[in-house]
Design a protein around this nucleic acid. Structure first.
Lengths: 215, 215, 215, 215
DNA sequence: CATGAATGAGGATTCATTCAT
DNA sequence: TATGAATGAATCCTCATTCAT
């Protein structure tokens, strides 16, 4: 009975950690391939090369916990890529631009993970931390947007150009997040199956430019 | 033996049409409430007030056909709203702007249908006409974008202002579609349950402005 | 989706009623043969001669509902036997005596049902109406005891004999119920397997006499 | 490789004995709390604070052996209390009376153990020594009853009072055992959860009086 | 001594579909 | 037209047991 996660941080043995990772990876693949509705523990077990479905139940307290772990794991890898690149920029506008670019690059390189994330977010009604994730992401973007707008406004002010009125950061943030997710879906429709999509990465700069102009 | 297909256009009697509509409506409600994964024919039947599941099987060849019908029906009502408003505009930029506004207005007024649509699109991997729908919608938007960009370019040319380079219409289109769908998801997270979301409608103009600036 | 019982009194078709009875009967037999812990829907289905376990789920909302139905059904047949015989007596002491005798006669003739009842009562922690049943039965007996004691007291009073102090009706009632259930268990240990136990019926009069003396 | 049997009387090391006791205690608690049907080795292990289920399998040959041990252990403690008190009495009637009182006192003080015992006896059909135990107990009581009846008869004879006919000792014994077990069940229904039930102890004298009158 | 890994069977339940009426 | 009966697969999960370390 190892699992039980969420409550206490029990020490994890090596094999347990390895197995959990293996299962999470298989879950990601299965979600991306079949969609949330057709993803069952049995299919995941088969994908993982496990003989019994019970093995998953042995390492995870239930389907919900597995899905939560998938969300947490995938989000962590995404943040690992995006966050430092954003932090490295010195101007607010650059930070916003890099967020969009880096997000699309991550999504291009980890399309499978991105699809899995979206599947869980949309497919599952019970909030398994995935709602929080989209909410959290949107708030982060809204903050980036607000700062970029302030920066732009002060630049214009010094040049005597009033410029157009700012669009509510929150609206821009929702649009940005939607555009990123939409790009993933579009990519999957254009080029089904697993693997990266270089075209997607190339869209990053253009998408960033699109939104920067809109600020 | 009525239904059975979506291909052969058999004449439909009155009660048959009524029943199908009733079932489709129940399917939409159920999808929006429970999500694709938890939507079963049984649940739909209960929502519809039908005592037997067999009734659905009687009018629809299978779950897939019902889902296809849901997609088709919902899409039709959306187009009914958006298309004429777009057509009524005289300039290409106005048409693009109105597309975004009208889309968000429809989505605000028919949130349940919009959610059902997204659920089917994302939740199920078997293409039940919903992929075609998103592909088609994106193409339409791309066309609107391209024409608006041309119009803007010719205006600038006549004023001697070269202006910034245009962003690939296709990229903009994907972003627009994604932003619209994202707004729906966000609205649902912000205000769960059925019913319209006025806040959503109010975002339309701002979202449109955002993208027009980006053109 | 016929079942759903407990909430509304839906009309029952003939086959449905018949099937439910068949399943309840099989459940009683299985409970008596294997004990609560080893009684599964699968075993019940096999006993009932049903090919699929799903059939039970089709007619009962769940295992709990089936168990409740078993309790209700068995209790009803017991009451049908015992209640009128008790009511037919004119004196309170006779009513108490007949309650014990009739109870043991029912238990002797329907040993299987009696065992099933005890199995559910003891084996299941969630109160599926079976706790209420034992509580209710005990209260009824306590009432019979109290009235019989009053009657005996008034008889003694008229003869000038004070007699011994009365034992709390509630204690007697618990003892009576326990003795009846204990007799069932003992009978099963003495003569395992299904079928009636005439010896048990014969014990009724003696058991009744035992408790009447104790009043 | 210690346990493995209940037959061979291998010498037990200290830790082994301690572990077995710990597990048995946990089994008793779990049985009383969840009932036989919901008691699994896993639950017992958790109750015992053991991290692995395998630990139980290491010390007991199987679930059956553990249950047998539970029965044996609990019975031993009960006998330890009841037997000497019975033996201390000089008259047969007093011995019978004290048996009932002491039994209820033990049951009141060790309600958890008593419930566990009943759970195993009733819940499981495979005779795990628990049948023998109830059979044996009944025989002991029957003997006490017979001797008490003889004693009473000889007393009456010397006073010239024929008195009522004796009730078969065996019937009385079954009733007594049933009443004791019934009192436990009733106590649990009245006051769920673990811990002693003083009310139960108080019933002992009244229950004893009830049966003595009946002799 | 003790643990954790692994397995395979069996648990209840839900579901889409077919069929007879 | 419509209903309810029936089926069998598939779902998630729990369990007792065995095994290697």
């Amino acid at each position: 009975m190892p699992a039980k996660t969420g409550e206490a941080r029990e020490p994890r043995t090596f094999t347990e950690t390895a197995r959990r990772e293996q299962i999470v990876r298989a879950a990601v693949d299965t979600l991306a391939e079949l969609g949330y509705a057709d993803t069952s523990l049995g299919k995941i077990a088969r994908t993982a090369g496990l003989s019994s479905v019970g093995m998953i139940s042995y390492y995870f307290a239930g389907k919900a916990e597995l899905m939560s772990e998938v969300v947490a794991t995938v989000l962590a890898t995404a943040e690992e890529i995006v966050a430092p690149r954003v932090a490295a920029e010195s101007s607010a506008v650059a930070r916003f631009r890099v967020y969009v670019e880096a997000s699309l690059e991550w999504v291009a390189a980890h399309r499978t993970e991105a699809v899995a994330l979206i599947e869980i977010t949309v497919g599952s009604r019970r909030p398994e931390r995935s709602d929080d994730m989209e909410v959290g992401a949107t708030e982060i973007v809204a903050d980036l947007v607000a700062r970029a707008q302030t920066e732009l406004a002060s630049r214009r002010e010094s040049s005597g150009d009033p410029g157009p009125e700012s669009i509510a950061p929150h609206v821009v943030a929702v649009a940005v997040r939607g555009a990123i997710n939409g790009a993933v879906g579009h990519s999957l429709r254009r080029r089904p199956g697993p693997g990266a999509d270089p075209e997607l990465a190339a869209e990053g700069a253009r998408l960033a430019e699109l939104f920067v102009r809109g600020l």
